[in-house]
Protein backbone atom coordinates (compact mmCIF):
# COMPACT_ATOMS: atom_id res chain seq x y z
CA UNK A 1 0.00 0.00 0.00
CA UNK A 2 2.94 2.33 0.71
CA UNK A 3 3.13 4.70 -2.18
CA UNK A 4 6.21 6.69 -3.07
CA UNK A 5 4.06 9.81 -2.82
CA UNK A 6 3.06 8.98 0.77
CA UNK A 7 4.87 11.11 3.31
CA UNK A 8 3.35 9.32 6.28
CA UNK A 9 1.99 5.82 6.68
CA UNK A 10 0.19 4.68 9.81
CA UNK A 11 -0.58 1.01 10.43
CA UNK A 12 -2.81 -0.42 13.13
CA UNK A 13 -2.08 2.43 15.50
CA UNK A 14 -3.44 2.13 19.04
CA UNK A 15 -2.87 4.70 21.76
CA UNK A 16 -4.60 4.62 25.12
CA UNK A 17 -4.77 6.84 28.18
CA UNK A 18 -3.84 4.53 31.02
CA UNK A 19 -4.57 5.65 34.53
CA UNK A 20 -4.41 4.10 37.97
CA UNK A 21 -5.41 6.14 40.95
CA UNK A 22 -6.63 5.16 44.39
CA UNK A 23 -7.24 1.63 43.21
CA UNK A 24 -9.24 2.43 40.08
CA UNK A 25 -7.63 1.46 36.79
CA UNK A 26 -8.93 3.14 33.68
CA UNK A 27 -8.01 2.74 30.07
CA UNK A 28 -9.38 5.26 27.60
CA UNK A 29 -9.00 3.89 24.09
CA UNK A 30 -8.76 7.22 22.35
CA UNK A 31 -6.93 5.93 19.25
CA UNK A 32 -7.98 2.44 18.34
CA UNK A 33 -6.55 0.58 15.41
CA UNK A 34 -6.09 3.36 12.88
CA UNK A 35 -4.54 2.77 9.48
CA UNK A 36 -4.08 5.60 7.02
CA UNK A 37 -1.54 7.35 4.85
CA UNK A 38 -0.96 10.97 3.99
CA UNK A 39 0.29 11.98 0.53
CA UNK A 40 2.71 14.68 -0.41
CA UNK A 41 1.23 18.06 -1.16
CA UNK A 42 -2.25 17.46 0.15
CA UNK A 43 -4.49 18.74 2.93
CA UNK A 44 -5.87 15.83 4.87
CA UNK A 45 -8.80 16.75 7.08
CA UNK A 46 -9.67 14.84 10.23
CA UNK A 47 -13.27 15.28 11.32
CA UNK A 48 -15.43 13.97 14.11
CA UNK A 49 -17.38 15.32 17.05
CA UNK A 50 -15.61 16.51 20.15
CA UNK A 51 -14.03 13.82 22.35
CA UNK A 52 -13.85 11.39 19.46
CA UNK A 53 -10.07 11.21 19.72
CA UNK A 54 -8.92 13.65 17.04
CA UNK A 55 -6.46 15.47 19.25
CA UNK A 56 -5.18 12.22 20.69
CA UNK A 57 -4.60 10.83 17.20
CA UNK A 58 -2.61 13.76 15.94
CA UNK A 59 -0.64 14.07 19.14
CA UNK A 60 0.51 10.57 18.40
CA UNK A 61 1.29 11.56 14.81
CA UNK A 62 3.25 14.59 16.00
CA UNK A 63 5.18 12.47 18.52
CA UNK A 64 3.78 14.80 21.14
CA UNK A 65 2.31 12.38 23.62
CA UNK A 66 2.62 12.66 27.37
CA UNK A 67 1.60 10.21 30.05
CA UNK A 68 -1.04 8.97 30.63
CA UNK A 69 -1.38 8.70 26.84
CA UNK A 70 0.80 5.95 25.43
CA UNK A 71 1.18 4.14 22.15
CA UNK A 72 0.11 0.57 22.67
CA UNK A 73 0.50 -0.93 19.24
CA UNK A 74 1.07 -0.14 15.57
CA UNK A 75 3.66 1.63 13.49
CA UNK A 76 3.99 4.99 11.82
CA UNK A 77 6.63 6.00 9.32
CA UNK A 78 7.55 9.41 7.98
CA UNK A 79 9.50 9.81 4.75
CA UNK A 80 11.27 13.14 4.39
CA UNK A 81 13.55 12.99 1.33
CA UNK A 82 15.82 10.08 2.10
CA UNK A 83 15.12 10.13 5.84
CA UNK A 84 12.75 7.39 6.91
CA UNK A 85 11.77 7.54 10.56
CA UNK A 86 9.34 6.06 13.06
CA UNK A 87 9.38 8.56 15.93
CA UNK A 88 8.51 5.85 18.45
CA UNK A 89 11.47 3.70 17.46
CA UNK A 90 13.99 6.46 16.85
CA UNK A 91 16.10 8.14 19.53
CA UNK A 92 14.99 11.48 20.90
CA UNK A 93 17.92 13.21 19.13
CA UNK A 94 16.76 11.84 15.82
CA UNK A 95 13.22 12.98 16.51
CA UNK A 96 14.39 16.43 17.59
CA UNK A 97 16.37 16.70 14.38
CA UNK A 98 13.23 16.45 12.25
CA UNK A 99 11.05 18.69 14.39
CA UNK A 100 10.28 22.09 12.93
CA UNK A 101 12.60 21.47 10.00
CA UNK A 102 10.46 18.73 8.50
CA UNK A 103 7.56 18.29 10.87
CA UNK A 104 5.75 21.01 12.73
CA UNK A 105 2.69 21.00 14.87
CA UNK A 106 0.14 23.69 15.65
CA UNK A 107 -1.34 22.70 18.98
CA UNK A 108 -4.98 22.97 19.92
CA UNK A 109 -5.59 26.14 21.92
CA UNK A 110 -3.01 28.27 20.15
CA UNK A 111 -4.12 31.16 22.31
CA UNK A 112 -1.84 29.88 25.03
CA UNK A 113 1.13 28.36 23.24
CA UNK A 114 3.25 31.50 23.26
CA UNK A 115 5.33 32.30 26.32
CA UNK A 116 3.36 35.11 28.00
CA UNK A 117 6.32 36.92 29.53
CA UNK A 118 8.60 37.12 26.49
CA UNK A 119 8.35 38.96 23.20
CA UNK A 120 7.31 37.10 20.06
CA UNK A 121 10.75 37.39 18.52
CA UNK A 122 12.16 35.21 21.30
CA UNK A 123 9.70 32.50 20.39
CA UNK A 124 10.89 32.67 16.79
CA UNK A 125 14.55 32.45 17.69
CA UNK A 126 14.00 29.72 20.29
CA UNK A 127 11.91 27.58 17.99
CA UNK A 128 13.32 28.13 14.56
CA UNK A 129 16.89 29.37 14.73
CA UNK A 130 18.55 26.05 15.25
CA UNK A 131 16.45 24.01 12.79
CA UNK A 132 16.92 26.63 10.08
CA UNK A 133 20.67 26.30 10.44
CA UNK A 134 21.70 29.72 9.13
CA UNK A 135 23.46 32.69 10.71
CA UNK A 136 21.57 35.27 12.78
CA UNK A 137 21.30 37.84 10.05
CA UNK A 138 19.92 35.48 7.43
CA UNK A 139 17.59 34.02 10.02
CA UNK A 140 15.96 37.36 10.78
CA UNK A 141 15.83 38.28 7.10
CA UNK A 142 14.03 35.06 6.31
CA UNK A 143 11.71 35.40 9.27
CA UNK A 144 10.73 38.92 8.23
CA UNK A 145 10.25 37.83 4.65
CA UNK A 146 8.10 34.94 5.80
CA UNK A 147 5.93 37.21 7.93
CA UNK A 148 5.48 39.60 5.05
CA UNK A 149 4.55 36.76 2.75
CA UNK A 150 1.79 35.92 5.23
CA UNK A 151 0.68 39.56 5.35
CA UNK A 152 1.92 39.99 8.90
CA UNK A 153 3.84 43.08 9.87
CA UNK A 154 7.36 42.28 11.14
CA UNK A 155 6.53 44.68 13.98
CA UNK A 156 4.69 41.89 15.75
CA UNK A 157 8.08 40.42 16.58
CA UNK A 158 8.40 43.13 19.20
CA UNK A 159 4.97 42.48 20.74
CA UNK A 160 4.05 40.37 23.72
CA UNK A 161 1.43 37.66 23.12
CA UNK A 162 -1.18 39.38 25.28
CA UNK A 163 -0.97 42.48 23.10
CA UNK A 164 -2.32 40.56 20.10
CA UNK A 165 -5.90 39.60 19.34
CA UNK A 166 -6.89 35.94 19.22
CA UNK A 167 -6.84 35.80 15.43
CA UNK A 168 -3.51 37.55 15.34
CA UNK A 169 -2.02 35.13 17.83
CA UNK A 170 -3.29 32.23 15.77
CA UNK A 171 -1.65 33.68 12.68
CA UNK A 172 1.59 34.22 14.52
CA UNK A 173 1.51 30.59 15.64
CA UNK A 174 1.00 29.46 12.08
CA UNK A 175 3.83 31.68 10.90
CA UNK A 176 5.99 30.26 13.68
CA UNK A 177 5.17 26.70 12.68
CA UNK A 178 5.86 27.30 9.00
CA UNK A 179 8.88 29.59 9.06
CA UNK A 180 11.26 26.68 8.43
CA UNK A 181 9.17 25.52 5.47
CA UNK A 182 8.47 22.03 6.84
CA UNK A 183 7.18 19.28 4.58
CA UNK A 184 4.61 18.14 7.10
CA UNK A 185 2.35 20.41 9.14
CA UNK A 186 -0.13 19.22 11.71
CA UNK A 187 -2.81 21.70 12.80
CA UNK A 188 -5.31 21.00 15.57
CA UNK A 189 -8.49 23.10 15.46
CA UNK A 190 -6.61 26.24 14.43
CA UNK A 191 -9.81 28.09 13.59
CA UNK A 192 -12.15 26.93 16.31
CA UNK A 193 -11.90 29.84 18.74
CA UNK A 194 -12.05 32.48 16.03
CA UNK A 195 -15.01 34.36 14.64
CA UNK A 196 -16.08 33.65 11.09
CA UNK A 197 -14.30 36.51 9.32
CA UNK A 198 -10.99 35.85 11.02
CA UNK A 199 -11.52 32.13 10.45
CA UNK A 200 -11.64 32.72 6.72
CA UNK A 201 -8.39 34.69 6.76
CA UNK A 202 -6.62 32.03 8.75
CA UNK A 203 -7.85 29.28 6.44
CA UNK A 204 -6.72 31.22 3.41
CA UNK A 205 -3.35 31.67 5.06
CA UNK A 206 -2.92 27.95 5.70
CA UNK A 207 -3.97 27.17 2.16
CA UNK A 208 -1.45 29.72 0.81
CA UNK A 209 1.40 28.39 2.88
CA UNK A 210 0.60 24.87 1.78
CA UNK A 211 0.49 25.82 -1.90
CA UNK A 212 3.67 27.87 -1.77
CA UNK A 213 5.69 25.23 -0.02
CA UNK A 214 4.06 22.13 -1.43
CA UNK A 215 3.86 20.60 2.01
CA UNK A 216 1.34 18.16 3.44
CA UNK A 217 -1.10 19.42 6.05
CA UNK A 218 -3.10 17.36 8.50
CA UNK A 219 -5.93 19.60 9.49
CA UNK A 220 -8.23 18.77 12.40
CA UNK A 221 -11.57 20.33 13.10
CA UNK A 222 -15.00 19.16 14.11
CA UNK A 223 -16.50 21.73 11.72
CA UNK A 224 -17.42 20.07 8.41
CA UNK A 225 -17.91 23.36 6.59
CA UNK A 226 -14.29 24.26 7.31
CA UNK A 227 -13.24 20.90 5.90
CA UNK A 228 -15.26 21.56 2.79
CA UNK A 229 -13.21 24.71 2.36
CA UNK A 230 -9.75 23.37 2.83
CA UNK A 231 -9.35 19.60 2.73
CA UNK A 232 -8.42 17.50 -0.28
CA UNK A 233 -9.27 14.32 1.53
CA UNK A 234 -11.10 13.77 4.81
CA UNK A 235 -10.91 11.04 7.42
CA UNK A 236 -13.91 10.73 9.72
CA UNK A 237 -13.14 9.62 13.27
CA UNK A 238 -15.78 8.17 15.54
CA UNK A 239 -15.00 7.01 19.09
CA UNK A 240 -11.31 6.52 18.41
CA UNK A 241 -11.74 4.73 15.10
CA UNK A 242 -11.44 5.85 11.52
CA UNK A 243 -14.90 5.09 10.10
CA UNK A 244 -14.66 6.61 6.64
CA UNK A 245 -12.04 8.22 4.45
CA UNK A 246 -12.23 9.67 0.96
CA UNK A 247 -11.87 12.72 -1.27
CA UNK A 248 -13.77 15.69 0.11
CA UNK A 249 -16.23 15.90 -2.73
CA UNK A 250 -17.03 12.19 -2.55
CA UNK A 251 -17.69 12.32 1.19
CA UNK A 252 -20.01 15.27 0.82
CA UNK A 253 -21.94 13.88 -2.12
CA UNK A 254 -21.87 10.15 -1.60
CA UNK A 255 -20.95 9.23 1.98
CA UNK A 256 -20.71 5.52 2.68
CA UNK A 257 -21.05 5.63 6.44
CA UNK A 258 -24.23 6.65 8.29
CA UNK A 259 -22.18 8.84 10.67
CA UNK A 260 -20.65 10.78 7.78
CA UNK A 261 -24.06 11.08 6.22
CA UNK A 262 -25.29 12.59 9.44
CA UNK A 263 -22.36 15.03 9.73
CA UNK A 264 -22.78 16.16 6.15
CA UNK A 265 -26.54 16.26 6.33
CA UNK A 266 -26.67 18.40 9.42
CA UNK A 267 -24.75 21.24 7.78
CA UNK A 268 -26.99 24.25 7.23
CA UNK A 269 -27.61 25.14 3.60
CA UNK A 270 -28.90 28.31 2.03
CA UNK A 271 -32.59 28.08 1.27
CA UNK A 272 -33.03 24.97 3.37
CA UNK A 273 -35.60 25.41 6.10
CA UNK A 274 -36.18 21.81 7.14
CA UNK A 275 -35.24 21.11 10.72
CA UNK A 276 -32.36 18.71 11.07
CA UNK A 277 -32.89 15.53 12.98
CA UNK A 278 -30.30 15.55 15.72
CA UNK A 279 -28.35 12.37 16.27
CA UNK A 280 -29.79 10.60 19.27
CA UNK A 281 -27.76 9.52 22.22
CA UNK A 282 -24.34 10.63 23.35
CA UNK A 283 -20.88 9.92 22.05
CA UNK A 284 -19.68 6.71 23.70
CA UNK A 285 -17.51 6.57 26.75
CA UNK A 286 -14.10 5.55 25.44
CA UNK A 287 -13.23 3.83 28.69
CA UNK A 288 -16.01 1.36 27.99
CA UNK A 289 -16.96 1.57 24.29
CA UNK A 290 -19.91 -0.32 22.77
CA UNK A 291 -19.20 -3.73 21.32
CA UNK A 292 -19.12 -4.35 17.56
CA UNK A 293 -19.44 -1.18 15.54
CA UNK A 294 -19.06 1.64 18.06
CA UNK A 295 -21.66 3.67 16.25
CA UNK A 296 -24.41 1.06 16.45
CA UNK A 297 -26.33 2.45 19.45
CA UNK A 298 -26.94 5.70 17.55
CA UNK A 299 -27.12 4.32 14.04
CA UNK A 300 -30.39 4.45 12.10
CA UNK A 301 -29.27 1.49 9.96
CA UNK A 302 -27.99 -0.76 12.73
CA UNK A 303 -28.67 -4.50 12.47
CA UNK A 304 -27.79 -7.30 14.88
CA UNK A 305 -24.48 -7.98 13.21
CA UNK A 306 -23.37 -4.40 14.02
CA UNK A 307 -23.69 -5.13 17.74
CA UNK A 308 -21.26 -8.00 17.73
CA UNK A 309 -18.85 -7.68 14.84
CA UNK A 310 -16.47 -4.82 14.19
CA UNK A 311 -16.78 -3.70 10.57
CA UNK A 312 -13.39 -3.46 8.83
CA UNK A 313 -12.37 -0.33 6.91
CA UNK A 314 -12.83 -1.47 3.33
CA UNK A 315 -12.41 0.14 -0.05
CA UNK A 316 -15.79 1.21 -1.41
CA UNK A 317 -14.73 3.39 -4.32
CA UNK A 318 -11.77 5.24 -5.72
CA UNK A 319 -9.50 6.05 -2.72
CA UNK A 320 -12.69 5.81 -0.69
CA UNK A 321 -12.85 3.54 2.36
CA UNK A 322 -15.68 2.96 4.83
CA UNK A 323 -16.19 0.79 7.92
CA UNK A 324 -19.84 -0.13 7.79
CA UNK A 325 -21.65 -3.41 7.30
CA UNK A 326 -24.32 -1.64 5.31
CA UNK A 327 -22.17 0.84 3.40
CA UNK A 328 -24.11 0.25 0.22
CA UNK A 329 -27.38 1.30 1.76
CA UNK A 330 -26.15 4.64 3.15
CA UNK A 331 -28.01 7.56 1.56
CA UNK A 332 -27.16 11.24 1.93
CA UNK A 333 -29.57 12.68 4.51
CA UNK A 334 -30.78 15.57 2.42
CA UNK A 335 -30.88 15.88 -1.35
CA UNK A 336 -27.58 17.51 -2.12
CA UNK A 337 -27.35 20.13 -4.77
CA UNK A 338 -23.65 20.34 -5.30
CA UNK A 339 -21.83 21.28 -2.16
CA UNK A 340 -22.84 23.09 1.04
CA UNK A 341 -23.58 26.73 0.51
CA UNK A 342 -20.67 28.15 2.51
CA UNK A 343 -18.20 26.35 0.35
CA UNK A 344 -16.49 29.09 -1.59
CA UNK A 345 -12.96 27.92 -2.16
Amino acid sequence: MADSTDILTVKGLKAYYRMAYFGIDREVRAVDDITLSIRRNEVYGIAGESSSGKTSLIKVLAAAIRPPLEVVDGALTYRFGDIEIDPYKASSEEVNAIRWKHLSYIMQGSMSVLNPVRRIRHSFSDFAFQPMGVDKKTFWERTRAHLERLNLSPDILRAYPHELSGGMRQRVTIALATVCQPEFIIADEPTTALDVVVQKDVLAMIRDVQRQMGSSVVFVTHDMSVHANIADRIGIVYAGRLVEEGPTRTLFTAPKHPYTAHLVGSLPRIGDTTTKAALEGRPPNLADPPSGCRFHPRCPLAIDKCKTEVPPLETVGQSHRSACWRADEVKPLAPVAGQPAQVTP
Binding site: A64, R99, S104, Y105, M107, N115, D126, F127, P131
Partner: peptide
Protein backbone atom coordinates in the same frame (compact mmCIF):
# COMPACT_ATOMS: atom_id res chain seq x y z
CA UNK B 1 4.72 21.70 26.21
CA UNK B 2 4.90 23.47 22.89
CA UNK B 3 8.48 24.63 23.38
CA UNK B 4 9.52 21.14 24.40
CA UNK B 5 7.80 19.70 21.36
CA UNK B 6 9.55 22.13 19.09
CA UNK B 7 12.84 20.83 20.43
CA UNK B 8 13.84 24.05 22.19
Amino acid sequence: TYAELAGV
